[in-house]
Design a binder for these strands. Sequence first.
DNA 1: TGTTTTCCGTAACCATGGTTACACGCAGGG
DNA 2: CCCTGCGTGTAACCATGGTTACGGAAAACA
Lengths: 237, 237
Amino acid sequence: MSVKIPAKNDESLKSALQNTALFRNLSEEEIQSCLVCSKAESIYYEKGEMIFSEEDHPVCLPLLISGSVTLGMDYSDGKRNIIAIFENKGDVFGHELILIGESKYGMYAQAQAKSHILMIPKDFLVGTCERNCGFHSTLISNMLLMMAQKSLNLNERLEVMSCGTLRQKIAKMILFSIGDKSSMSVSMSRQEMADFLNAARPSLSRELMRMQNDGLITVEGRKITVKDRNALEEILN
Amino acid sequence: MSVKIPAKNDESLKSALQNTALFRNLSEEEIQSCLVCSKAESIYYEKGEMIFSEEDHPVCLPLLISGSVTLGMDYSDGKRNIIAIFENKGDVFGHELILIGESKYGMYAQAQAKSHILMIPKDFLVGTCERNCGFHSTLISNMLLMMAQKSLNLNERLEVMSCGTLRQKIAKMILFSIGDKSSMSVSMSRQEMADFLNAARPSLSRELMRMQNDGLITVEGRKITVKDRNALEEILN
DNA sequence: TGTTTTCCGTAACCATGGTTACACGCAGGG
DNA sequence: CCCTGCGTGTAACCATGGTTACGGAAAACA
């Protein structure tokens, strides 16, 4: 069973919120004011508990403090579609639906592990608040930045997914995330990486090995080293 | 060749802007103030002209008044990836890059037909403006709403592109855009539709005809009629 | 009106990659 | 220690769909 605490009384929150995208550029005092003024609630969910379900009305913005949350949809034939998984402190989900003013979520959010969520009432975020104009506008502008960033991430994902052959997708993914280093450590399992690239796992394994044989990269478990950066970039042309 | 006019002198603009998402809830007088204060420009592009290209710096937010704009990327082998097509009054594009403060667009925007664009300087949107606080915050909150909507659209696009076979992509695209009607008119050419689905044009034609033969839909040029909605939904499982 | 260009469907060929099944190494638990 | 489960690489088979080339219809243009 989930445990609710008014957020203003939850001491562990204040420091946790300071480094989140939504509360960026706010002092601890301002965050404290936010928590009081917004009437936010700090809620602890057990593994498997629903944070919101498809029929719920979006009235609060959930912000993940700790734990792991799955966002998904049910199909009428009983199959489930996982839309996203959140497990980073400061992640928010469903904010688009709140901003749009949708009357139903149309998707569910479920705690994948024991999770700590800050529930911020919609009215505090969307409405204008005479008293606290200062940090209110900071909040809004943080929100804008978060959404812009998310939009770009989605675009990047689209770019990777739409760049032709599997080898090209892999090359683009590697070049995106390796920066100017020569080796990287993939945070995903092969299966997850395959899902990300929208490919089948054996196909991904096969292609990674081919790329190794062709002298483009070396693969050791989750460590990938670029051997021939030029050739890798050439593939994308 | 494109024709530039300072936006404050462009009489046709003011009424056109009133029903756009960005200027929602602003009176004609407030819009007039915006145009003066922002130093926005009203620009007319001929078909085929570039509105911005991949190397340009994002300094202005383009807002479509009339016409049609394609957002895309070029690969050096000549292939194009169409990211989006804008043809509705009030559409804006590239706003994420402006908000983030990206130094390059990384994509191009091209007029698909004679188009009328309002170019709003970035500084007006991002900076805070002491004088006009009232409608400034309305603008920002409109921006939030637009981005939320866009985020949902991108998700939809991702969903379409990652749903397996070409037939499934087509089915999902149709079901998304047909609502509860039984027929629809596609706004894209076959080539554009193929680019959108990340497929080759002949492959798309082939599959559309197969789906027609299988009694799922009928295709007459750009008009698609759903014959067997259940079967179409069944494909997605 | 005739000419040209664009758009679209069609067909044959073959590469890419999905599917399935299996084997191996490794970690955790009894 | 064995057993089990998981993550991973491998191989064979074949479906999906990309490629290229062509013809016809419609649209645009002179």
